[in-house]
């Protein structure tokens, strides 16, 4: 369990986190989603006591992290895959970490085995790929068999097999009743992994809800195929309704339920040969939530998707810019 109360962190004049409050519950995977520079890593560093909050407070398992008698057995964290001396071997790194809590060498071997580092454990970490570095960071996080696991961008640099492995791992950890707090800027990954989402943008919490609620909150879109799109478009027009022509006979309607569209079509004597309610993707929901909160906006990409309109492609470009590695 992680409880943050009014966390604020200001670096110089630049506010990184501005009054963040949330609770991460055990037994489920909580995703921490936000664009680059939104304050995810800073918040996680404050949880781990590495950064001192400018104001506010955060407790892990009921105490400040630093107040725990055996912190590694309470909380395991992957904050930065590079938090390892590059000249030391993975095995010796884990052994040194384990020694602080008298964690037996067997456990070191276990986490090396678990994270698939067996073949490279005796090699210098400096030669590791980004993915192997992530695995080592996860191994270190699991070393103390902790109740709470905090992972900052754990799938960064992992191959598809590794991504799947992390997804199954965090789900299994949550299923065991542990608290799992996972940050990412990749909504697609979150959609598959998290049960609950905390969305942060520009240092503020934008949403804190079960992932299903975040998806449902978005206006329902319906795909309509009709041979008279012009008539139907006019008939559906109204407050809060948007109709976009995707293809000559394909419309995407939002703001009107599927049944009401069918009724309108019936009244207008228009033939409809497809009427499909669309599940909003998390990506769309996320873009809606964060469109004003992206720190680094990209310029619009002209004419890449001419059917989508300029505003939309501009937004997609902003996500593309967010797909790189988090800088802080």
């Amino acid at each position: 369990m992680i409880e943050a109360q009014g966390l604020v962190k200001v670096y110089g004049n630049k506010p990184a986190v501005q009054g963040v409050s949330f609770t991460v519950q055990p037994g489920r995977v909580t995703g921490f989603l936000g664009p680059n520079g939104a304050g995810k890593s800073t918040t996680m560093r404050m949880i781990m006591g590495l950064d001192r909050p400018t104001s506010g407070d955060v407790l892990v398992n009921g105490k400040h992290y630093a107040k725990h008698r055996a912190p590694l057995r309470e909380v395991g964290a992957l904050l930065d895959a590079k938090a390892v001396h590059t000249s030391r071997s993975a095995y010796n790194h884990l052994r040194a970490m384990a020694a602080t809590h008298s964690i037996p060498t067997k456990r070191v071997h276990d986490v090396i085995e678990l994270t698939g580092l067996g073949a490279v454990a005796k090699k210098r970490v400096g030669g590791f790929s980004l993915g192997m570095g992530q695995r080592l960071g996860i191994a270190a996080a699991l070393l103390g068999d902790p109740q709470t696991i905090i992972l900052d961008e754990p799938v960064n640099g992992l191959d598809p097999e590794g991504v799947l492995w992390v997804r199954n791992l965090v789900k299994a950890l949550a299923a065991e009743g542990r608290t799992v707090f996972l940050s990412s800027h990749l909504m697609s990954e979150m959609a598959l992994t998290a049960d609950h989402l905390i969305v942060i943008g520009r240092g503020r919490i934008i949403a804190d809800a079960p992932i299903q609620d975040i998806l449902n909150n978005r206006a329902q879109r319906v795909r309509v195929r009709t041979d008279r799109p012009d008539v139907l478009t006019r008939a559906l027009a109204g407050e809060g309704v948007s109709v976009e022509a995707r293809e000559p006979e394909l419309l995407e309607v939002s703001g009107v339920p599927a049944r009401a569209i069918a009724e309108t079509a019936l009244a207008q004597q228009v033939l409809v040969y497809e009427l499909t309610p669309l599940q909003a993707s998390l990506e769309e929901a996320y873009m809606d939530l964060t469109k004003d909160e992206v720190e680094y906006h990209s310029g619009p990409v002209a004419d890449v998707h001419d059917h989508a309109g300029n505003a939309e492609s501009g937004r997609h470009a902003a996500v593309a810019a967010g797909a790189g590695q988090e800088g802080n």
Partner: peptide
């Protein structure tokens, strides 16, 4: 053993 917080401290 989920949630086990036994063993040696720092």
């Amino acid at each position: 053993q989920a949630g086990r917080v036994t063993g040696h401290g720092v």
